[in-house]
Design a protein around this nucleic acid. Structure first.
Length: 735
DNA sequence: AGGGTGTGGTAGC
DNA sequence: AATCGCTACCACACCCT
């Protein structure tokens, strides 16, 4: 089912001098919409129905509204008397309680689609929202269980702590609302009995958390699945885990670098904004390896001087070792070893590979020394990471080569580390220059050179283009940076979105999409987001463990908030649940493997940890406890209210289209492999309702055929007429 | 229309 | 045979009022 593109169904809110309420306006609007839809009516399928749509739906609420309207039904978006059906997909805790009280059926959007398909109003039982269904069966099960005197050791997700829906801070002094809340609360207590186990253990969690206040680690113990193939600690302690996580430190060092620059403002001259723009990008070559090496004794250094080196968390080279290489030097790279490669694989490629240990202390010190050397160059520095930054040099440098050589020598003297420097008239040019120069490089490139130099690189050579973007690019026939340089901006924007498309195109031509934001000395840098997460070595078996784990994450988040002196007004919970069809092998190394990801957030005021229940409930009510068994709970991410900068341009394309497009393309490619290209079923392309996307798919698949030389296959047909017929049938005017 | 919320991609070693 | 892991940021889609 393809979505009708979200037409702009909203009307401008009228100025109303007579002070009519917004509600009036909404009623009027509702009537008007109904009238409009009635005019397009096909049949009277839903004629006696008043259908309420709620929340995020698939297909979208807008699509359903039109669908119902054209079949004679009435649609509302708020509950009102007379509603006959509620269509809903995910229920938040409060709505869950509201709806479970009503006798109106709460159904999945599939109901509407099926009714339309069968041209009749179907029985609703098949389409009841699973959450509510679960609740019903649970209640019957419960009564059965109590009769059988067989209490379950675990408890259901949807059953927990609904009696704690009161907000810790009542934001709205409106008494009516508070009364309603109290009423709700009463109802909830009637419906849901607090589980005794939960009560006791929740108390324990609180106690444990209080213990952490004295900087000591939380004694909260979370057991792993017995006989789990994962060999990690038998406790999960977020703080302890982070101590040994290289990525955690990497992220922290970036913040440290920013703070270092705030406390030690660059004393260098101010760049001349009227001069020709000149930016420097500097990066320490294989930072971890060099830094670990620099901490070795002189004797060892001599020994390892020209050997292949790598840094790895483990020197365990056993068959089952899945440790990966954090960083490897260029000697090692000559053997085909790469960052991120599994140690075992790397050692197969090079038996002499020397494994160095992490030394986070040294990395942090070296990072500071590195930045110390950059302070007198210019007043404008923008750190990228602990070992990498941009510096604005416009009008400050006379002899570029000399400057770069001297700077490199200076850093080498001070830290013993070898760096690469790139100069360019934009950030991305400088960045690419460094990349091309590594290791131990010093390059200056201009725009013309830039375009020539990277023409033949694959698109993922450009910063900002990762695996996903590269795959989509390939699918629209763009493989090299040169292809991108000559691509149609229009096509890029249709595929990636207006802004993103433009940015990608700009990148290929050496024009920045990254904004140069130098650190302002003395000013507190406020980030827009604070996040705490742990994805490794987490194997939770019970709901209680899950709750404890999330609470611990929240404690860490709160600590971070205080440390950084920042306010948090929204909390986001990310939850990874092992996908149903996930290969169990994948999670063997302690990671998440293939997961289904869910996000839920709530606005907060006050202490982060107070919102424990609010965050949990909506998201947990979607799962049964069985589903969470073996789930990986990812993290809690607190967010500051970001600056609202709305993008006011018209959207050409929406993500749904992009996803549909990807799917179609995959289907088509599968078919191509299985059948003759010519007979490949392309009828589905014509079913795409969105004209833009349909045309794009045709265009793209056409492009693909040309790119891959498959056009020749078509041309093999001797019969010219038949050939033409196929061509036309497939691509219409596109070929 | 603008605010709120959910999704997904990227970089750094 | 398999591409994680942590944190911060951006662009974007979609719903609610």
């Amino acid at each position: 089912m393809y979505r009708i593109k979200a037409a702009n169904t909203y009307e401008k809110r009228p100025e109303d001098p007579r002070g009519n309420s917004y509600v009036d306006y909404r009623h009027k609007k509702q009537d008007k919409l109904d009238e409009q839809l009635n005019q397009q009516k096909i049949d009277d399928l839903f004629v006696d129905c008043v259908i309420m749509l709620n929340g995020r739906l698939e297909p979208s609420a807008n699509y359903l509204r039109q669908l119902i309207g054209t079949h004679g039904g009435k649609v509302v978006f708020q509950y009102m008397p007379g509603v006959t059906h509620i269509i809903c997909q995910n229920l938040s805790a409060s709505k869950f309680i509201q709806y479970s009280k009503k006798t109106i059926p709460v159904l999945l959007p599939k109901y509407i689609l099926s009714c339309v398909e069968h041209k009749t109003l179907l029985d609703t039982t098949e389409f009841i929202l699973p959450q509510l269904l679960l609740e019903q069966t649970q209640q019957t099960q419960q009564t059965q269980q109590t009769q059988a005197q067989e209490p379950s050791p675990e408890f259901r997700m949807s059953q927990i702590n609904f009696n704690y829906v009161v907000e810790p801070v009542v934001l709205d002094p409106d008494s009516e609302r508070i009364q309603q809340k109290l009423q709700n609360l009463e109802q909830q207590i009637k419906i849901y009995q607090l589980n005794e186990i939960a009560q006791i253990d929740y108390g324990e969690v609180i106690q444990n958390v209080q213990n952490t206040d004295s900087q000591k680690s939380s004694p909260t113990q979370l057991q792993y699945i017995q006989n789990s193939p994962v060999k990690t600690h038998d406790k999960i302690n977020v703080r302890e885990y982070h101590e040994q996580s290289r990525l955690h430190h990497l992220s922290q060092w970036k913040v440290e670098a920013q703070q270092f620059l705030i406390q030690n403002p660059p004393q260098g001259p101010k760049p001349n904004d009227t001069a020709a723009p000149l930016f420097m990008h500097i990066d320490i070559d294989c930072f971890f390896v060099q830094a670990s090496y620099s901490a070795l004794s002189a004797q060892q250094q001599l020994l390892y001087q020209s050997l292949p080196l790598c840094v790895c968390s483990s020197s365990n080279t056993g068959q089952n070792s899945t440790a990966d290489i954090a960083s490897c030097n260029y000697v090692a790279r000559s053997y085909g070893i790469r960052n991120g490669m599994w140690l075992r694989t790397a050692q197969e490629k090079c038996k002499e590979l020397v494994i160095l240990k992490y030394d986070f202390q040294v990395y942090s010190e070296q990072s500071k020394r590195f930045y110390q050397n950059l302070l007198d160059i210019s007043s404008q520095i923008m750190p990228v990471s602990c070992d990498e930054c941009y510096i604005k040099l416009s009008g400050l440098i006379s002899n570029k080569e000399e400057f770069m050589t001297e700077l490199k020598a200076k850093i080498k003297r001070s830290t013993g580390l070898i760096t690469s420097i790139g100069l360019g008239s934009s950030l991305i040019q400088a960045r690419i220059a460094t990349k091309l120069g590594k290791p131990n490089g010093q390059i200056h490139i201009g725009k013309e050179q830039f375009i020539e130099l990277i023409k033949h690189k694959t698109v993922d050579f450009l910063p900002g283009i990762g695996q996903e973007t590269a795959t989509v690019m390939n699918s629209i026939g763009i493989y090299s940076v040169g292809d991108l340089q000559h691509a149609q901006l229009n096509l890029l924007q249709q595929t990636f979105g207006e802004i993103k498309g433009q940015q990608l195109f700009n990148s290929s031509l050496g024009i920045d999409s990254l904004v140069f934001k130098p650190i302002q000395g003395g000013q507190q840098q406020k980030s827009k987001q604070l996040q705490v997460s742990q994805n490794f070595g987490v194997r939770l078996t019970t709901l209680l463990q899950l709750k404890q784990f999330i609470y611990n994450l929240l404690v860490e988040l709160q600590a971070k908030q205080k440390e950084r002196n920042q306010q948090i007004n929204r909390i986001i919970l990310h939850l990874n649940v092992v996908a149903k069809n996930a290969n169990p092998q994948w999670a063997k190394n302690g990671g998440c493997g293939q997961c289904e990801k869910t996000t839920s957030s709530c606005s907060i005021q006050g202490e982060v940890t107070e919102y424990y229940e609010q965050i949990l409930e909506p998201i947990l009510s979607q799962f049964r406890v069985e589903d969470v068994r073996g789930a990986d709970i990812v993290g809690v991410c607190g967010e500051q209210q970001p600056e609202i900068i709305r993008n006011k341009t018209n959207k050409i394309n929406d993500r749904t289209s992009l996803n549909q497009f990807k799917e179609l393309l995959n289907n088509f490619q599968e078919q191509q492999q299985n059948t003759n290209l010519i007979t490949g079923d392309i009828s589905q392309i014509d079913q795409i309702q969105d004209e833009n996307v349909r045309e794009k798919v045709k265009q793209v698949i056409g492009l693909q055929i040309i790119k891959r030389g498959n056009l020749d296959d078509v041309l093999k047909y001797d019969d010219f007429q038949q050939k033409n017929y196929y061509m036309q049938q497939m691509w219409g005017e596109f070929l």
